[in-house]
Amino acid sequence: MNIFRFAGDMMHLTSILVLLLKIYATKSCSGISLKTQELYALVFLARYLDLFTDFISVYNTIMKLVFIVSSTAIVWCMKRDRVVRRSYDKQLDTFRHYFLLAASFALALLVNEKFTFQEIFWAFSIYLEAVAILPQLVLLQRSGNVDNLTGQYVFFLGAYRAFYILNWIYRYFTETHFSRWIACISGLVQTALYADFFYYYYISWKNNTKLKLPA
């Protein structure tokens, strides 16, 4: 464990806590893409298949459980909770995310560390996570003004993978046989997708104005 990865994990956890706060405090999921939440739940379920077979550390196990439970609870809440689901922007959240699923799985079959069930699903979760934010970014562009909690949610979600890139650079230079090309290249793509969001987020923070993504 290094400071970059720990900071990244804490930012990831913060993004989930901010999203939970928004949904439970405002009893509303307006501006949140259910499709992105569904993709994230799949990312964690596909990535943490080794939850019960490989014990890394207490921290690792607890965080995996937190990510799986929180992501599935958010999807369940946006679909089933009578109050919350009324505020879901169904007509705006129209990104065809099944293509992202199919493309990620196809790529995982072609590019993986080992052609085994667990490694293919791990690579699938890495590729899917890189593109999972797309429905959410499209929804933000369509829904015009973005409320603070939603903006903070997306910001921390983007920042966490940027810290993981620093973590991979650090591990590359400090550990002998460290090579995580799949995660690293995918992480670069993932963080690049947030580039324009970060720019408009910075502008809104600098000018102290409402965050607005151009359509």
Binding site: R5, D50, D54, K64, F67, E113, K114
Partner: peptide
């Protein structure tokens, strides 16, 4: 599974 290919990251 050998230790080095364990996925120790979240």
């Amino acid at each position: 599974r050998s230790t080095e290919d364990l996925k120790d990251e979240l």
